[in-house]
Nucleic acid binder design. Sequence first.
DNA 1: GCCGAAGGTGAGCGAGCGCTTAGTGTGGCC
DNA 2: GGCCACACTAAGCGCTCGCTCACCTTCGGC
Lengths: 211, 211
Amino acid sequence: MSTAEETAGGEAQAWGEVTPDAARRLLVAAVEAFAERGYHATTTRDIAGRAGMSPAALYIHYKTKEELLHRISRIGHEKALEILRTASRREGSPTERLADAVSSFVRWHAGGRTTARVVQYELESLGPDARAEILALRRQVDGEVRGIIEEGTRSGEFEVIDVHGTTLAVLSLCIDVARWFNVDGPRTPEQVGELYADLVLRMVGARGAAA
Amino acid sequence: MSTAEETAGGEAQAWGEVTPDAARRLLVAAVEAFAERGYHATTTRDIAGRAGMSPAALYIHYKTKEELLHRISRIGHEKALEILRTASRREGSPTERLADAVSSFVRWHAGGRTTARVVQYELESLGPDARAEILALRRQVDGEVRGIIEEGTRSGEFEVIDVHGTTLAVLSLCIDVARWFNVDGPRTPEQVGELYADLVLRMVGARGAAA
DNA sequence: GCCGAAGGTGAGCGAGCGCTTAGTGTGGCC
DNA sequence: GGCCACACTAAGCGCTCGCTCACCTTCGGC
């Protein structure tokens, strides 16, 4: 059905790597359902229904409901990490790279809010093993941002007292976008990305950030 | 400080206004359970068990499980609003008042993480009427912070381009503390409050914020 | 034209859910 | 002492949950 395949804003294309087709439809349906109601409040019947299938079909492609969440979470975190890596490893000053990292990371959280919500807020619904795997990815995410801030601080381009704390705050600011961003609200993901990049440059004391 | 909440077992003293004793014990048990596992994953048997009572006892003091969440959410939001009001209405420059607001708001989210998690992240588990009531409180919370930022901008003490967007970001930053703060981590609530107050003053371009 | 693998369905299992009800113990008041 | 209002419990109702199973369809290879 079109409802399952067209996640608002065309988020579906991000799941192109998932095959076969039925498995992808179920995954996209699960993302929508988890984002709307939360993992525990979502039933397997709801997921299957959104994908236009019977409840039993889910268990042909996934062992349990939790495996669905695990797959979503891993793919989502890998995508988030890739976004930050791209910004972190491009050419340019720490200021430029930090602004790029924040604006693209925020764009992802705002534009792909449905996915981002699940990725960022349903971590604790995973079992211990799956959670440990995802936490390792999160540490890498953290490391990318911290790397830029460290470099800018070392070069004197930034003025940061507590690098770890500031990294935490920057990531926290970006991630929380998934909680409050409203597609029907007054701001586009691009506008929020730009605003946040400016705010973050101010937080790290980058020259010429204010004004 | 009298605002400081501690005791690993729970932040029980904050619920002093709830009577009778059994109703308060159930409420505190619900806060802990909701914070740990989420509203939907928490059973009435779990709540009653933590309070040392049978499942049926819950329904003597509360009509439904949702009423428990509603009560927790309202009391919590009122407390949060009170904290911001106190900071907003004290004497001092916008810079001082904003720093005070942020640091005390953050302290509340970090120190009372258990409560704050429920208050900030289980809003969508409420029914439409209860949610509307809580959203009205949130708008007041928003207004308090925006008021300070507006005043500082008008007086030239701050340098803010997008007042609404910046207000959103400041609150977002504070609220997300409830997601990541770890009682066993390296920072105390006070330290995070201080760090965040500094970061927020930088965000609004307050003079002399970057030390 | 037959076959087995792959992908799907309808019915339904055991478990656990939120919540109710009938009955029990207890303390205060006459 | 007799009585009732109250706080609480044991048992369990009706329902929905995650998940399974017996069976059905489709289709490429020979």
